[in-house]
Nucleic acid binder design. Structure first.
Lengths: 393, 393
DNA sequence: ACATCTTGTTACATCGATGTAAGACGTACC
DNA sequence: GGTACGTCTTACATCGATGTAACAAGATGT
């Protein structure tokens, strides 16, 4: 009744445990007949590999952790979707954690949650400071997403946020807008997303000779829709009288649009709105949302590739890898590919290929492309294609 | 340089491996002095537990799998958020998979992905048929979410979809609407979400004496925004001339609203719209969305509680649990609580408590409350609170 | 026919942590 | 002072799968 072990399969098939293992792992030198017999026994017993055993032996779990602030922020949900798919394509399983922007949670993630369950982490930090990263002994292979942290501590994937914000702002300036509210902005020195994007905004203003009004930069507690709406309401109440909004993500942009709507202001006629992230909601909102679209699929692909590279590189550090040559290492059916090909793209630092085990490569810094997608919230609504058939009621 | 083992800690602290283990697991009979020494050694070496080893020994991983169709459907993202949080509260970690409504993926999930990595699965099936569930030997503790499957195969959590759809439809009927389009509907016999909700719709029509027009039930490939928009456009083009829309989720409702907007139809004046799920987007859309709001937090709580119950019940089946009494079983610092309390609510079947190991309880059937949240898309827009300060440009 | 090679299979040790059972030490009590 | 008990600690086996190395059985060459 208990779950069958490899031993049970071996017994039933009349072969040794190792032979069963060899069949499971597609080791080449197994006769077709033996293979069949073993397969049959596996089916008969309903045997499934016990990963605890396998991982203890192999030293790798095939699991990577994805750590994001909140899954119900659509940007992260969409990104998680892509990363999970990409990981699966590489034989990896993704374990999702949420930090709620809490530093303790983020630190725990870097530490592998006090254990070694994951082979690596993809982390989107909000609360960590550089110091946190530097101080850790580089235990777990890590890839960072988004802005927040200085380079030099771990692999890092992001769009050029300063340039993106600048382009978005220039777009608004070209429309003749001059009082551009930055929802979620932060006029500071550090490397957080808010700060970097705000700097891009200021750069655009400066280039256009438009004076910077610090009151137009309104911070928020969280990059979420309610915060965007509240910030917008506040700005209007405070008489800031903006003629455009640069919301630092789409959720806040949607909140801002809603708030403007409630105040009887038209978008884009009275106030033009730009967001960041290109989430699906912005493609179907009324009006549709102009936004900075990062190449999310590319972010996912690069992040996973980098992480796989790091994991491969860290071989021999942890358990497993008992000795020299592979002995009879088979194709490892569903597991991690040996190298995973860190596809060579615009990388800063790092020798090209073949990371020799034990040697730690300098961090990769990857910039992923973005583009400004112009929709109704700045370009004006496309109106009535077809007459309404009836008035209800 | 290699990662420290418990052996290394023991060596450094000058005690045995088991003593280190005892400290780690808060075993009572360890002198304060020894405890300090060991803790120090752990800190010095940066030791972290190797979960592969622990799990091999303990037989449980503390990981549950959450399997949803797509994470970028906000409903599932929001639900995942809540389930992850709830699981964390119970010392469990969540591994997220996406099936993309593919039957093979869903089957793989029930099978624990060909291994035993997860202690259990919370699955939101779309493509499975009852047969799939019945045929599996009940290997992995499982909780099903949503409609799709008949009871009797595994624990199941859902709202009363038929009643919910009926209430939503009644609401539209009360507004005087008579030609209610069902976006995503399916007029069939089976137990899928679409069918069950469509039956609720028909029940409401029947009760109100409104004839059923099958052409008003328009199926979709996927419960997503583009599908909702496309279905709406198609319906309008086909001259179905609806005066209301019952969209079977909020994403499709948002798509429908967008399509109506593009056709120059006003919501709710020309066409009233109701959705399902109460996702955040519907609370900030223009107009805001009337919707059936399931108690998602409750769904998450019940699902996790049921699963924990099943896992506890399945004790002794898999590995671990070597012998009788706990010997010196400690407080198991961060692991799964012994019972987890399947809080008693409206349950069908199943003895109340203390599932004796080995005995398999009949499936639980849990119905979670929902309510109809009426917003602008049926009640009319709240308009202009404050005059617009300027016209841009 | 015999040495050599290749292929297919096996016994055994091992990955790291922990349950078991037993041992070492100290204290309290008669 | 000796015994019994409680406290603290340890040696060892074990969880399940797999790498290593060795060996058996055919195939090949001379």
């Amino acid at each position: 009744m208990a779950r069958p072990r490899i031993k049970d399969v071996a017994l039933r098939a009349g072969v040794s445990e190792k032979t069963v293992s060899n069949v499971i792992n597609d080791y080449v030198h197994v006769s077709e007949r033996t293979r069949r017999v073993v397969r049959q026994a596996i089916d008969d017993l309903g045997y499934r590999v016990n990963l605890a055993g396998r991982h203890l032996r192999r030293g790798r779990t095939g699991i990577i952790a994805l750590v994001v602030p909140e899954l119900d922020l659509p940007y992260f949900a969409e990104l998680a979707n892509l990363i999970i798919a990409e990981a699966e394509r590489n034989g990896l399983t993704v374990l999702v954690h949420q930090t709620r922007a809490d530093r303790e949670h983020e630190l725990a993630a870097l530490d592998g949650f006090g254990s070694d369950f994951a082979d690596g982490v993809i982390l989107s930090p909000l609360a960590l400071v550089d110091e946190d990263l530097r101080s850790r002994s580089g235990a777990l292979p890590t890839v960072l997403l988004g802005e927040k942290l200085n380079a030099g501590c771990a692999d890092h994937v992001a769009i050029d946020n300063a340039a993106a914000a600048r382009e978005a702002t220039e777009h608004l300036l070209q429309l003749g807008r001059r009082r551009i509210l930055v929802v979620g902005g932060l006029d500071g020195e550090s490397e957080g997303t808010a700060e970097v994007r705000t700097r891009g905004y200021r750069a655009a203003l400066a280039a256009a000779g438009v004076p910077f009004d610090p009151r137009l930069v309104v911070p928020v507690a969280k990059f979420a829709t309610p915060d965007g709406a509240a910030a917008m309401h506040r700005a209007l109440t405070d008489g800031l009288a903006p003629d455009a909004v640069l919301a630092l993500n789409d959720q806040m942009a949607i909140g801002a649009v809603r708030a403007l709507h409630e105040r009887g202001l038209r978008v884009p006629e009275d106030v033009a709105v730009v967001g960041f992230d290109d989430v699906e909601a912005g493609r179907y909102s009324v009006p549709t949302l102009t936004t900075v679209a990062p190449d999310k699929a590319e972010i996912a692909a690069v992040a996973v590739a980098l992480l796989i590279g790091r994991i491969a590189e860290s071989q021999g550090r942890g358990a497993g890898e008992p000795a020299g040559a592979p002995g009879n290492a088979p194709g490892v059916n569903g597991a991690v590919p040996a190298h995973g090909g860190v596809n060579g793209a615009a990388a800063t630092g790092g020798s090209p290929a073949g990371a020799r085990a034990g040697r730690v490569l300098p961090p990769h810094e990857r910039v992923v492309p973005h583009r400004l997608v112009i929709r109704e919230s700045t370009s004006g609504a496309r109106k009535s294609t077809v007459p309404g058939p009836r008035a209800g009621d």
